[in-house]
């Protein structure tokens, strides 16, 4: 009887120490849920959800302050992936965000650019090269197509051009049923 009590207390002590040790040494920095949500968002930093970028929106979703249907660039695929990750019910996209657009790219009409730098300040991903009274140019590879550079331009010389599909950027289309699985897997990586 006494031995049993002794053994159980010893085990409890050992596991307690183990748990205490791992709580300190394997502590997860930051919020893993927000990280996973952030991984699903398109990283356009376009602010169309009403938050200043993808990360703030992810944190708002994690804190259950925001709905999961506010991301127009992500569209329905992102909304379903988020619902899947969080165990929430899928919500239809907002009326504003429901029209899914093809991927676009900002292109500056050089003959009209006056070098005012307003688009450079507006670009959330810093993909416009230029300075005051110098030609501004979009780095096509880095442009997320968020269109935030359009409203500030005083001469309206920026066009959104749909990205043409060519052999360099073609991807296998995701089958509808597997789309959720694949995005879920991406979040785990």
């Amino acid at each position: 009887m006494l031995i049993a009590v002794f053994v159980i207390s010893l085990l409890a002590l050992a596991f307690g120490l183990l748990l205490g040790y791992s709580a300190i040494h394997f502590r997860v920095e930051g919020d893993p849920i927000a990280d996973n949500i952030d991984a699903l968002l398109p990283q356009t930093q376009c602010g169309q959800c009403g938050y200043p970028g993808c990360r703030p929106y992810a944190e708002a979703i994690a804190a259950e302050e925001a709905e999961i249907n506010l991301c127009p660039p992500g569209g329905e695929t992102t909304m379903i992936a988020l619902a899947d990750l969080l165990g929430r019910d899928p919500v239809p996209l907002d009326a504003e965000s429901s029209t899914e657009k093809p991927k676009e790219l900002a292109v500056i009409r050089e003959a009209e650019c006056i070098g005012c730098t307003l688009c450079i300040q507006a670009c959330p991903v810093d993909c416009i090269i230029g300075a005051a009274k110098q030609m501004h140019t979009v780095i096509a590879d880095q442009c997320t197509g968020c269109a935030l550079c359009l409203p500030p331009c005083p001469v309206e010389c920026i066009d959104m051009v749909p990205i043409k599909q060519h052999i360099g950027n073609w991807k296998w289309p995701l089958p509808a049923a597997d789309a959720q699985l694949a995005t879920g897997r991406m979040a785990e990586v």
Binding site: E110, A111, E112, C113, I114, G115, C116, L118, I129, G130, A131, K133, Q134, M135, T137, P152, P154, V155
Partner: peptide
């Protein structure tokens, strides 16, 4: 950088002639 093609002053005059107002930010 590369130089501008348009002359900002000319562009401004043209806009003024068309009656558009300059917006900032």
């Amino acid at each position: 950088y590369r130089p501008l093609i348009a002359d900002p002053k000319e562009a401004r005059k043209k806009r003024a002639a068309e009656g558009k107002q300059m917006t900032k930010g």
